[in-house]
């Protein structure tokens, strides 16, 4: 396989895992905009999406039914997290609420272990294993599913914010809470919606990714951290920025995993790929603290 083919293969690997980081980052941005809180349970929604889909197909449900039901269940869990970790603490500071979401993540992780045990589970590929060929590079068709479904989800969210009244009302809340209340928007409802929407996005990512990477009860934290970094690198609060950041981290991780070993003649092991991606992300934040697509703090009018 030529170098170009290898690069193509690593790019597909990177973009597909990065797309899931991007969905997590997008969800974090939506919740951050509505509440000012970083939801550290976000990655658990990815894990739950995958685990639920495996459980439901195991009960004999067709894949599409299992997937939709999983999204519904995880959305409900997201709403529950909002009720118990955010709304139940109306006078709490932002930092207290963030810690509450960390608590929620432990509960979800522990619950998943109780329900499904410590083993990794896998979902069958959506459309078989026969690789698609681009040149000599063989592409796992499931990775195409991951990229396609993520793309459709991101576009769907953008259309929702741009063209629906509820989407505009959510933006209004993010821009100014008091003003939003003064036009009659119920802030609590918008915050609930932001958790539901974010949980659904993460679940979608988990469901499409599980056939590629398998899923285990303990995997949520990785998604939270990488998704958080994606959101920060992209510019916190900027949804598209989070998606771009996520894809960038995924690609860096894949390329580092593929080439760093050879390029450094074995000096740096490919197991450091994640660390390399994080180092580049930190470098970007050093040069551009507001993130790739983030705006500098605006002065008030």
């Amino acid at each position: 396989m030529s170098l170009t083919d290898q690069i193509v293969q690593y790019l597909v690997t990177g973009v597909s895992i990065g797309a899931v980081y991007g969905l997590v980052g997008l969800g974090l941005a939506i919740i951050f905009n509505a509440t000012g809180v970083i939801n550290f349970a976000q990655g658990e929604f990815v894990m739950l999406g995958g685990m639920c889909a495996v459980a439901f197909t195991g009960l004999g449900m067709p894949l599409i039914v299992a997937a939709l039901l999983s999204i519904a269940v995880v959305t409900a869990v997201g709403l529950l997290v909002e009720r118990l970790a955010i709304r139940a603490l109306p006078r709490a500071s932002i930092i207290t609420l963030i810690i509450a979401t960390i608590g929620a993540s432990f509960v979800l992780k522990g619950g998943a272990k109780l329900l499904w045990g410590p083993e990794a589970v896998i979902l069958p590929s959506f459309s078989g294993h026969a690789p698609l060929h681009i040149g000599a590079a063989g592409i796992d068709p499931q990775r195409v599913w991951v990229m396609g479904v993520a793309l459709v989800s991101v576009i769907g969210v953008q259309l929702f914010f741009k063209y629906t009244l509820t989407g505009k009302a959510m933006q209004a809340c993010a821009i100014n809470r008091s003003a939003a209340q003064l036009v009659g928007i119920n802030i609590n409802r918008m915050v609930s919606l932001s958790f539901g929407l974010s949980a659904a996005l993460a679940a979608i990512g988990g469901i499409v990714l599980t056939p590629v990477t398998m899923m285990r009860y303990s995997q949520g934290a990785t998604f939270t951290l990488t998704g958080f970094l994606a959101a920060v690198v992209g510019g916190l609060g900027n949804g598209i920025g989070a998606v771009v950041g996520g894809i960038m981290l995924g690609v860096l991780e894949a390329l580092a995993g593929g080439f760093v070993d050879v390029a450094t003649r074995g000096l740096i092991h490919s197991g450091y790929s994640k660390a390399i991606a994080l180092a580049v992300a930190l470098l970007i934040l050093w040069l551009r603290p507001q993130g790739l697509l983030g705006r500098r703090e605006r002065e008030s009018a």
Binding site: K168, Q171, I175, N176, A179, A180, L182, S300, A301
Partner: peptide
């Protein structure tokens, strides 16, 4: 309803 001090428009919309 109130027109608040500083107007508080939805600037990005």
């Amino acid at each position: 309803t109130q027109v608040p001090e500083g107007r508080l428009l939805f600037d990005d919309l």
